[in-house]
Nucleic acid binder design. Structure first.
Length: 882
RNA sequence: GCCGGGGUGGUGGAAUUGGUAGACACAGCAGACUCAAAAUCUGCCGACCGCAAGGUCAUGCGAGUUCGAUUCUCGCCCUCGGCACCA
């Protein structure tokens, strides 16, 4: 453990007898006392209770990397603030926690240190759990789970078998990165500049059999249902819609005959109206026609092989130089019968559409560039409002919709009419029809890795792929293997893979692939609500708690994790395990926590990263430069990026907690930025939050020392007391709105800080003054309880309450305290601020106008000119237009 | 490249429905307290002009709509996230 208590001065007694809080703010003592109190009372153990409104508050569970990072602190503090706030609203709150415990880092650690992934993972979990507990999150730990526990992943396997039965899970080949030296499949992350990260060997693409989940069967539903998620951020819904990517277009066939074989090259297009402008077709390197041409021509073979060595990532495909080679084959245009050459293009995706595209250089930018490069014909066939077309250079409007020209029978038709006519003619010839195509692809879940959930299949020489019978579940992952980086350890472990066929009893081989870890995280929120059930995946407790009322997690999960969870929930629904369509009612996507990146890149060897804390940085004109503290030599600045282990730019939250306490760490995290913003980390500023805590503590302490205070006698308050009380209740209303509706925790905290500044200035030791102060401090502590629960716990008792603040209700603002007789109107002349005038609240326009024009500052600018117009926004402003 | 965010003082940010730009903090400067330091407290703190009163400019850049634009529209620049085997 790296938990080292930081230097902290010891408290000095004596404490007077009638005081219940110490004179000095000591977070370590306050926090452990509060945590002990919650633990003893079982405060956060959630029980199903039909009589109360339930509130399931869930944060994305962490990968147990070993240490909490700032993103976790941000995520779980947001969740805890909402959970505690909803509890104060009277809700029955469930806030569980678990571990997304399978994955690649455990194997990497094993390769580096020789420790078994199971051991490494469980040690990390133990450490991170202590860290979470020290932050005082109100978590129901009785429901804790780890996805590497057999009683969890058993149900992955069980539902996978149900999916096989229903045809949702199926087997087909998929493309992977293959390291020829280590004889192993690599993750995209392990491929650097086309080479294996450990071996440096050139990576090949390889096709292997894998299991897929038919998420595309739910495309339409997953897309349509986005409209019924009003409490999801607009941007997440937009990203998912684009990911699912519904396009309506035309599927058409180019017939061909070569060397005695007849066939049809299938192509999908959303621009069938440009079909008369086709001058070539391009196929993916993995397309059968490319393979056919390669078998006949060495240069095509070489090009196809080169493409196959390239990256499998879409981002790389989209940005690489567009290259191609003529196959020497040709196909016939489906409408004109003209001969069209077939090319292989490195930019054509095998996984989208048909793995082939029709080339219309006249109206597609990529095709245009390709035609220019390889001297292919460019044929304009769309007229965009008579604009002059030149093949010399691409213009953006070339891709716009217009009317067909040079298109024979289709001339003069617009996009819709041309598409209809062309689709009809193609259909008459049996060479095409309208079709909807989705960008979404089926979800490949096979991973050739050890530290994951085994896929419950047995391969029998006679019976083929046989599902493991339910009663043999779980297929347990042996926990004592240590991967060495070459191949999958399961495939080298006969005790695991040697087995009998469940159907015929013959010797058979167990599947050694494991599941994508996204499977684990696609339904864990159900399991929290059915914790410990050994007989069923979910039970009636899930029906009580689900859906998750508030889900909170990083924006980086906006697509994959959330989409897979929505899909998995629907599969569970179709299997009768839930009645829900959607698992997450409301979603908050927190921004990422970023930090500076500093590195050195030696002429040879691997790039070395340094933590910003080890760097002294300065601005050198436009450039930012820095030196490493330990050797004084320069380091390069790599900009701002997510905190990551590989870039060594993480900040350890434990140091903050040790130095300032959990409350300060939580408070600062929530104050630094609104939750959805990305946050550039800075150590400075934490001091401000700590100062606030000390100030608050001091004011509470000073007030308590004056002895018990009564309740304010409202009609007897003087104007100063009345004004303070108004601010208190204004703040209360704002803070409730900021937390409950707007989720802008930073402004809620700022409002309380402003109030505290007012309380510090308020020195009134009269009975009424002290009564107003008591009410104010009570409310301040209640308002802050979700943010700084430990200090609030202590101060609440210090203020003379016998209850625990965690069990208190959120107070309602006193409307009568908010009433004001006179308000200040802002006066503008031609939109520029020229004065402020007091008017009675509710003044009509005539009164406001008279008051505004009478103001000397305003009169100076009006200067006798006629008022052309006067805008009056009641209660706010007057704009005099002259 | 495609998809989605973001850009406001030296810094993080505020301005909630188109209505006072810079709340609240951080850093900095000055002062009080102190033998001294720390801590604490008080004041100042966008730029420019001005002795001042006050004025002008200013929310990435360029246009537009409006009595009024940080907010709406269009174009551009920079930056961050995702792109299907990192989680």
């Amino acid at each position: 453990s790296e938990h080292r208590p930081g230097p902290r001065p010891k408290v000095s007694f004596p404490v007077q007898l009638h005081m219940t809080i110490q004179d000095r703010y000591e977070p370590a003592e306050v926090e452990s006392a509060a945590q002990r109190a919650w633990e003893a009372a079982g405060t956060f153990v959630a029980r199903e209770d039909a009589a109360r409104p339930k509130y399931y508050c869930l944060c994305m569970f962490p990968y147990p990397s070993g240490h909490l990072h700032m993103g976790h602190v941000r995520n779980y503090t947001i969740g805890d603030v909402l959970a505690r706030y909803m509890r104060m609203q009277g809700c029955n709150v469930l806030q569980p926690m678990g571990w997304d415990a399978f994955g690649l880092p455990a194997e990497n650690a094993a390769i580096e240190n020789g420790v078994a992934p199971a051991r490494w993972t469980r040690d990390n979990i133990a450490h991170m759990k202590r860290q979470l507990q020290s932050l005082g999150f109100g978590i129901d730990w009785s429901r804790e789970l780890a996805t590497c526990d057999a009683d969890y992943y058993k149900w992955n396997q069980w539902l996978f078998l149900r999916m096989l039965e229903r045809g949702i899970a199926y087997q087909k080949t998929g493309v992977v990165n293959w390291d020829p030296v280590d004889q192993t499949v690599l993750a995209n992350e392990q491929v650097i500049d086309g080479r294996g990260w450990r071996t440096g060997a050139l990576i090949e693409k390889r096709e292997i059999p894998m299991y897929y989940l038919r998420i595309t069967q739910y495309s339409e539903e997953l897309l349509a249902a986005l409209d019924r998620l009003p409490d999801w951020p607009e941007r997440v819904r937009a990203m998912q819609a684009n990911w699912i990517g519904k396009s309506e277009g035309v599927n058409l066939s180019f017939p061909y005959e070569t060397g005695g074989t007849r066939g049809e090259l299938k192509v999908f297009t959303t621009r069938a109206d440009t079909i008369m402008g086709v001058t070539f077709v391009a196929v993916a390197a993995l397309h059968p026609l490319a393979e056919l041409a390669a078998s006949r021509d060495a240069s095509v073979r070489a090009f196809v092989d080169e493409c196959r060595r390239g990256s499998v990532m879409e981002a790389d495909l989209a940005t690489m130089d567009k290259k191609g080679i003529a196959t020497g084959l040709s196909v016939r245009h489906p409408l004109t019968g003209a001969e069209v050459p077939v090319w292989v293009g490195n930019y054509v995706l095998m996984a989208y559409g048909e793995g082939a595209v029709m080339g219309v250089p006249g109206h597609d930018e990529r095709d245009f560039a390709f035609a220019k490069k390889y001297d292919l014909a460019i044929l304009p066939v769309i007229d965009v409002q008579g604009q002059p077309y030149s093949t010399a250079a691409w213009q953006d409007w070339y891709a716009d919709y217009g009317r067909c020209v040079n298109s024979g029978a289709y001339d003069g038709l617009d996009y819709a009419a041309a598409t209809d006519a062309i689709a009809r003619d193609l259909e008459a010839k049996g060479l095409g029809r309208k079709q909807v195509v989705w960008r979404l692809r089926d979800w490949g879940i096979s991973r050739q890795r050890y530290w994951g959930c085994p896929i419950p299949i047995i391969h029998c020489p006679a019976c083929g792929a046989v599902p493991v019978p339910d009663e043999q579940l779980p297929v347990r992952l042996p926990e004592d293997l240590v991967p060495d980086g070459s191949g999958n350890p399961l495939a080298k472990h006969p005790a695991f893979y040697e087995c009998r066929c469940p159907q015929c009893g013959a010797a058979a081989r167990r599947e050694t692939d494991t599941m994508d870890t996204f499977v684990d995280s696609s339904w864990y929120f159900f399991r929290f609500a059915s914790a410990g059930n050994e007989r069923a995946m979910v039970d009636e407790r899930a029906a009580y708690w689900l859906p998750v009322d508030q889900y909170i997690g990083g924006i980086e999960h906006a697509i994959l994790h959330l989409l897979y969870s929505r899909f998995w929930t629907r599969v569970m629904r179709d299997c009768g395990l839930t009645r829900l369509d959607e698992p997450f009612q409301r979603l908050l996507t927190q921004g990422m926590v970023l930090n500076e990146i500093w590195f050195r890149k030696p002429a040879s060897g691997r790039i070395a990263y340094y933590n910003p804390a080890e760097i002294t940085a300065k601005a050198d004109g436009e450039r930012r430069t820095g030196v490493l503290n330990s050797d004084g030599a320069p380091v390069e600045y790599g900009g701002i990026g997510t905190m990551s282990k590989s870039r060594r730019n993480g900040v350890d939250p434990q140091a903050l907690v040790d130095r300032y306490g959990a409350d300060t760490a939580r408070l600062f995290m929530m104050f630094a930025a609104p939750p959805e913003h990305t946050l550039e980390w800075s150590d400075e500023g934490v001091e401000g939050a700590f100062r606030f805590m000390k100030r608050l503590w001091k004011i509470v302490h000073a007030h308590v020392q004056g002895g018990p205070a009564g309740r304010p006698d409202l009609p007897a308050l003087d104007p100063t007391q009345r004004a303070l009380r108004r601010q208190v209740h204004q703040t209360l209303a704002k803070v409730g709105d900021d937390i409950g509706r707007r989720r802008t925790f930073n402004t809620a905290i700022a409002a309380v800080m402003e109030l505290l500044n007012a309380l510090a200035r308020f020195s009134d030791s009269s009975a009424q003054g002290r009564a107003v102060m008591q009410e104010a401090l009570d409310l301040v502590v209640l308002m802050l309880a979700p943010f700084v629960p430990h200090a609030s716990h202590a101060m609440w008792q210090g203020l003379g309450h016998a209850t625990a603040v965690v069990d208190e209700r959120w107070p309602a603002a006193d409307e009568s305290a908010l009433v004001q007789d006179t308000i200040e109107l802002v006066v503008q002349v031609n939109g520029k601020l020229r004065g402020r005038v007091p008017v009675p609240a509710g003044a009509d326009e005539a009164v406001a106008r008279a008051a505004a024009l009478a103001d000397p500052g305003v009169a100076k600018f009006v200067a006798g000119q006629p008022v052309r117009k006067l805008i009056y926004v009641p209660g706010k402003l007057v704009n005099v237009v002259i």
